[in-house]
Write a protein that binds this DNA or RNA. Structure first.
Lengths: 199, 199
DNA sequence: TTAAATACTGACTGAGTACTCAGTTAGTAT
DNA sequence: ATACTAACTGAGTACTCAGTCAGTATTTAA
């Protein structure tokens, strides 16, 4: 791996677990095993390094989620929802550092003054919510999901699933026991009770 | 108001909107209109000031939520849920600064190494989730809410409502349009469809 | 009218910060 | 053999920060 990539990886981890202000470029350099100057050779300043992390996150997550849609087939929209929830949680543990970055305020504060940062964040959230929305729309077409506003319900489902992840990272409750309840709740909210042929 | 209280108020606001590391004691002093040393006279260090804020938040929120329960009567548990959601959002805008503090990582990081901080956080969350749980239990007794695990469902409802608040503070979506959907979703999840007399 | 306790002040300190820059090195083209 | 380049280095710079301290004002008690 190039030193540039190694710096990005170490910085992602430190920024995730310690936050922007508590992460010093000196520490990133030391852990990566490069000189401090090397970081500034590749990234002009701390903010650019942070943006590079968001950019790679956005690219990777779009890639992973579209691969998921390519490689899986779902018997119905309602069943797809459950697989999407499981996949989301899988990604959140696979990309633990970057999801933790999403749960910090650093990115949102930068987004207020930096349009590039705002664009990355929006792209990431759109990707995360899109996949729930797609499942709901699919379910509405095949009749397994009732007639609800797809985008807004996708955001609510997202909120619940993301809440699980946050409970876990905040270390206050054992979120694992909530998984089944969340899946069941989503089923209850979305499930169509009238026969599909009725519409 | 005493200078001590004034310092607490200003610090709460700054810590909420800028975060722990980005808030300097010098700025707190300047905005409050006291000398830097005055802060350290009342609070031994920055961490103690932070804990004092959490403590007052915990006390106030317990007070407000138990007042709500004292002063309101609810025709049924299911209807109580809707009022609780509205009240929660009311409190979140009333105590905007302190709820924003809850959405930052600062407190959770301190809680990892500081048992007092952990205790305050746990008390706050318990209070927030208790009121949802109480509504669900009430509804199960009067038959308006179905037989679901009360505590865990309370956490899920909390997750949705808190998600609304977070969307708002993160400034990414207009969360207002989601309110009705969240209330409707909660009703769908919890509502009892069998006649109360059947049990 | 003291004396003691409490409340407050702001200049100061030393550790830590992001970032710079003159210079080295390893590799490649001429 | 010479010239050139991108990657890399780490000591140095200017600055910010939490916390200290010696001293002053204000309140309380005898």
């Amino acid at each position: 791996m190039s030193k540039k990539d190694a710096i990005l990886l170490v910085a992602t981890h430190l920024l995730a677990i310690k936050g922007y202000k508590d992460t010093s470029m000196a520490e990133v350099a030391k852990i990566t095993g490069v000189a401090q100057g090397t970081i500034f050779y590749h990234y002009n300043n701390k903010e650019e390094l942070f943006l590079a992390i968001l950019k790679s996150f956005q690219e990777d997550i779009v890639e992973e989620f579209s691969r998921f849609r390519r490689e899986h087939n779902f018997p119905s929209g309602l069943e797809m929802i459950e697989d999407v929830i499981a996949f989301y949680l899988h990604m959140a543990s696979q990309m633990e550092d970057r999801f933790m970055l999403l749960h910090r305020h650093d990115a949102y504060e930068l987004a207020r003054v930096n349009p590039t940062c705002h664009a990355y964040l929006e792209a990431i959230y759109n990707c995360l919510i899109d996949i729930f929305e797609r499942a709901i729309s699919t379910g509405q077409e095949d009749g397994s999901i009732r007639n609800v506003p797809a985008r807004r319900m996708a955001m609510i489902v997202f909120t619940m699933v993301d809440g699980l992840v946050r409970f876990h990272t905040h270390n206050l409750y054992d979120a694992g026991v909530l998984y089944e309840d969340v899946v069941q709740s989503c089923r209850t909210i979305l499930q169509n009770h009238v026969a599909p042929s009725r519409s």
